[in-house]
């Protein structure tokens, strides 16, 4: 009997091609990272590990820590703001409320990152919407400095990551067995207690994966910190850009990219193992 090739093999070709090119590019970055920098030239020199020893300076460590910190804050605030939206989205009784919430939370995904970031610049600037409103209401005399601060960057990144967080949370919330909530109420739990003891623990897998995804996503953020941070808030991608395209030190930019990639993957692995341990403890994998 001859075995027939599964029909979908052909359709995998584009994916395989993309993967091959991506891996090749990664190797090129790896290759660049161990080359010597020749100032004033785009060509690179011979093999060296200087780029990696250069990383070990406080300024670069700070950028790394800042990147982690901003990513962490973004994940947490995104979670706090998205949970109520996701909850309402799943549980709203009226169809139109659900549809409205779905379209409100999904549409940002269809606007480009630059467009969204630019809108935030209009919102957050010294003469931006927030500052002029606050001044009109005589709540402040001097404009608040929001642009070019970590706060401003986090605000924009949170809004940027909320659609994904909402989708992940809504999925988790929709999988909660409503009978479990009814059973808890039947056993004497007030609505708040039902949420705290049943709904929240049962949506924990969604919460954790939301945090992991948004964290990893924010780690690689570039244009938002670039435009809103304006060089005053540096995340690792901005530092790599600075080195590669301002100083034209491509080898060091490659090293930074590599470090960013490794630390992002490393933190993902760490978080994934932590999540699966928590989930195992709760027996809700």
């Amino acid at each position: 009997m001859t075995q027939r090739r599964p029909f979908f093999i052909t359709f995998l070709a584009p994916a395989v091609l993309t993967a091959v090119i991506l891996v090749a590019a990664m190797f090129e970055v790896l290759q660049y990272s161990v080359r010597a920098f020749i100032p004033g030239a785009l060509d690179v020199g011979g093999f060296t590990l200087d780029n990696f020893t250069r990383i070990n300076r406080p300024i670069y460590w700070w950028v790394m820590l800042d990147t982690f910190y901003i990513s962490f804050l973004t994940a947490i605030f995104s979670l706090l703001l998205s949970y109520p939206v996701a909850f309402a989205l799943v549980r709203a009784r009226r169809d139109w409320v659900r549809s409205l919430l779905v379209s409100l939370s999904i549409t940002p995904l269809f606007t480009g990152e630059i467009v969204r970031t630019f809108s935030w610049m209009l919102m957050l600037g010294s003469d931006g919407f927030i500052n002029s409103m606050l001044r009109k209401l005589s709540l402040i005399d001097m404009p608040l400095q929001i642009m070019y601060t970590r706060f401003g960057v986090v605000v924009a990144l949170v809004q940027f990551s909320m659609p994904v967080m909402i989708i992940l949370l809504a999925t988790a919330i929709s999988h909660v067995d409503r009978d479990c909530e009814k059973a808890a109420a039947n056993l004497g739990a007030s609505p708040g207690a039902v949420f705290w003891h049943v709904t929240l623990p049962l949506t924990l897998p969604g919460i954790l994966s939301g945090i992991v995804v948004v964290f990893a996503w924010t780690m690689s953020a570039f244009s938002t910190p670039q435009l809103i941070g304006g060089g005053k808030v540096l995340m690792i991608a901005n530092l790599a850009y600075l080195q590669g395209f301002s100083v034209l030190n491509l080898p060091f930019a490659a090293t930074l990219s590599l470090i960013a990639l490794v630390s992002a993957l490393g933190s993902l692995v760490l978080m994934k193992s932590a999540t699966s341990r928590i989930e195992k403890r709760l027996a809700i994998a």
């Binding site: 009978d179 479990c180 056993l187 207690a193 003891h197 027996a283």
Partner: peptide, 17 residues
């Protein structure tokens, strides 16, 4: 939750966590 009425659900609705 203020009724003091016990109930066993068709699906049991035990708390999986």
């Amino acid at each position: 939750y203020r009724r003091d009425i016990g109930m066993v659900f068709q699906s049991y609705a035990l708390f999986p966590h």
